[in-house]
């Protein structure tokens, strides 16, 4: 099954290798890995999606914490969260066939960000299934896809929850695991939001 972890790590050379090497050593395939700056200077945020047995989550999180450069790990699991991915898709299209693609993009709330005589580029943001939906429709429509670039999943938990490490740095002894659990059950995701996230395929 797919596991999603958010890890806050020190922004130093070699940290990405250490994290990636851990998964390699556990013989777990990383499905996607995104890294970028977090809200704190010197701290990077990674979202790691990997395919592992349902019980592997604890060991992965515990092992990540054993890396000296890892500050915080969050095993997202079933917790209420927002997940997004950005994709750039280049499609072969002439001035005559463009309008068809424009319409599809409109339906998927995607944007056209580049036009060339032979092709155009679509930018789409959403959960994976929404992006896959657009790709599928383009294929079914006979539009030739020339290039796809996807960022992989980024995840942020909903509501009050913020990075525990950063909380701890500001206010010592913040929330406990029990608080977090209570908070999660209090805010189940609404159906409309879920529908928006999963796009139009369903």
């Amino acid at each position: 099954m797919l596991h999603t972890f958010v890890a806050l790590v020190e922004d130093k050379p070699g940290v990405l290798t250490r994290v990636a090497s851990l998964f390699r050593r556990l013989n777990i395939n990383i499905v996607s890995l995104t890294v970028g700056h977090s809200e704190r200077l010197g701290v990077s945020r990674m979202t790691i999606v990997c395919d592992a047995s349902p019980t592997a989550g604890h060991r992965i999180a515990a092992s990540l914490y054993k890396l000296e450069n890892v500050l915080q790990v969050d095993d997202i699991g079933q917790l209420s969260h927002v997940a997004r991915e950005l994709a750039l898709i280049k499609v072969a299209a002439t001035p005559q066939t463009r309008s068809q693609v424009f319409e599809l993009a409109e339906v998927f709330r995607a944007r056209i960000v580049d036009l060339a005589p032979e092709s155009l580029m679509i930018e789409i943001t959403g959960v994976e299934s929404k992006i896959e939906g657009l790709i599928q429709v383009l294929n079914e429509n006979g539009d030739r896809i020339l290039e796809i670039s996807r960022t992989g999943r980024m995840v942020m938990r909903r509501g009050q929850h913020t990075s525990k490490v950063l909380e701890a740095m500001r206010v010592p002894g913040m929330e406990t695991a029990e608080d977090l659990k209570a908070e999660e059950s209090a805010e189940a995701p609404s159906d409309e939001l879920m529908a928006e996230e999963t796009g139009l395929r369903e």
Binding site: T55, H58, R59, A62, S63, Y65, K66
Partner: peptide, 8 residues
């Protein structure tokens, strides 16, 4: 002492 050993 090592949480990664639990249930390994």
């Amino acid at each position: 002492v090592d949480p990664a050993e639990i249930n390994k």
